Computed example of a mutant assay.
Amino acid sequence: MTDALSPAARLALDEAFERDAARGGFAHRGAVAVIGDDALAAAARERFGSPIRLFHELTPIPVAPPEGCERHGLVPELVDGVTLVVGELPRTLAGVDEIAGLVARHADADVLVVLAAREKNLERGMNERPRDSFLEVAASRGRDKARALIASGPRPTPSPAYPRSEIVSGLDFPIAAHGAVFAGTRLDIGTRALLEVLPAQLDAAALPERPTVVDLGCGTGVLAVWTARHLPGARVIATDRSWSAVSSASRTAQLAGVADRVDTVHADAGEGIPDRSVDVVLLNPPFHDGRAVIDDMAHPLFRAAGRMLRPGGTLLTVYNSHLKHRGALERSVGPTSQVARTPKFTVTRSIAR
Rank of each mutant, 00 (worst) to 15 (best):
A8S: 08
V181E: 01
T83A: 11
G24D: 05
A64Y: 07
S6R: 08
G221T: 04
V339P: 00
V32Y: 05
D279P: 03
D268G: 01
H230S: 13
A269C: 15
K324R: 15
S159L: 03
L323T: 02
F48M: 08
S242Y: 04
V258R: 01
W226L: 07
V181M: 06
D289M: 06
V113E: 03
E88I: 15
F182K: 01
R291H: 13
P311E: 09
H56E: 13
E77C: 08
T314S: 06
A205Q: 00
G312A: 08
A204I: 04
A161N: 07
D38E: 14
D37P: 10
G142T: 10
L78E: 06
P335N: 02
R143K: 09
P7T: 11
R241V: 07
A234F: 01
R155G: 14
V113W: 04
R291K: 15
R353E: 09
L316E: 01
M297C: 09
D3H: 13
G68T: 00
S332W: 05
D188N: 12
E88L: 13
G179V: 03
G221A: 05
T348C: 10
H266R: 01
A138S: 15
D172E: 15
D215K: 00
D97C: 14
G290E: 11
I35R: 00
Q201N: 08
Q254P: 04
V197F: 05
G233A: 00
L74H: 05
D268T: 08
L315T: 06
A21W: 09
R276K: 14
I294T: 14
A259T: 04
P286D: 05
A253I: 02
G36S: 08
V168I: 09
V258H: 04
R235K: 15
G290V: 13
R331V: 03
V63E: 12
P90S: 06
L11V: 05
V293G: 06
D80C: 10
V85C: 12
T191G: 02
S242Q: 11
T314G: 02
I237M: 06
E98Y: 10
E271W: 12
L202A: 03
G36E: 03
T59P: 03
R19H: 11
L135H: 14
L202Y: 05
E128T: 10
R118G: 15
V318A: 08
E123I: 05
L207A: 02
G73A: 15
E77P: 09
L122A: 10
T83E: 10
A253D: 06
G95P: 09
G95D: 08
T59R: 07
V347N: 07
